[in-house]
Amino acid sequence: MEPNPLPRLACPGVVAGSADRPVLVGSRCTCCGEIYFPAAQGCTRCCASEMTAHELGAEGRLWSWTIQGFQPKAPYAGGEAEHAFQPYGVGYVEMPSGVKVESRLTVADPERLEIGMPMRLTLIAYRQVAGEAPVHTYAFAPAA
């Protein structure tokens, strides 16, 4: 069976794989090995400028979290009416390399979020406006 292709993404450069098995892509300094998300143009650790693409994987642990309680102003582009805004979770997820990735979370309930819990990468439609294709972004969900 062919894997499902990636949907329309706000951030096509940072996600690879398929809709069912997305992975995050960053970069790695060819000089000192430091890993970056998203891909960096230069290494802020050793000041080198040669970088190669690097896959960060799809699993990690919740490193910190918050709930976005109010509708952000632009540049936020969720597109919903003010009364339709639903608070959403945002966190940092520590990947196996130790790099922490800032991400939308699929959960916005403080009772269900705890630092250290295992998380898995997924894709969510953060912008769903009538008459246009939904726009997706990467997000982390609690791993079952």
């Binding site: 706000a10 951030c11 450069g13 940072v14 998203p38 490193w63 910190s64 979290w65 918050t66 976005q68 952000p72 632009a74 540049p75 936020y76 582009a77 969720g78 959403y88 945002v90 966190g91 940092y92 800032e102 991400s103 939308r104 630092i115 953060y126 912008r127 726009v135 972004t137």
Partner: peptide
């Protein structure tokens, strides 16, 4: 504006470019 900070537009569009979020995330940790 994300570009002013050397960031790509998606970071702002997807609702993560807020100073209040940063303070909360740093405080929580």
């Amino acid at each position: 504006r994300p570009r002013d900070w050397g960031l790509e537009d998606w970071y702002g569009e997807t609702g993560m470019m807020l100073t209040t979020q940063f303070f909360a995330l740093k405080t929580r940790r």
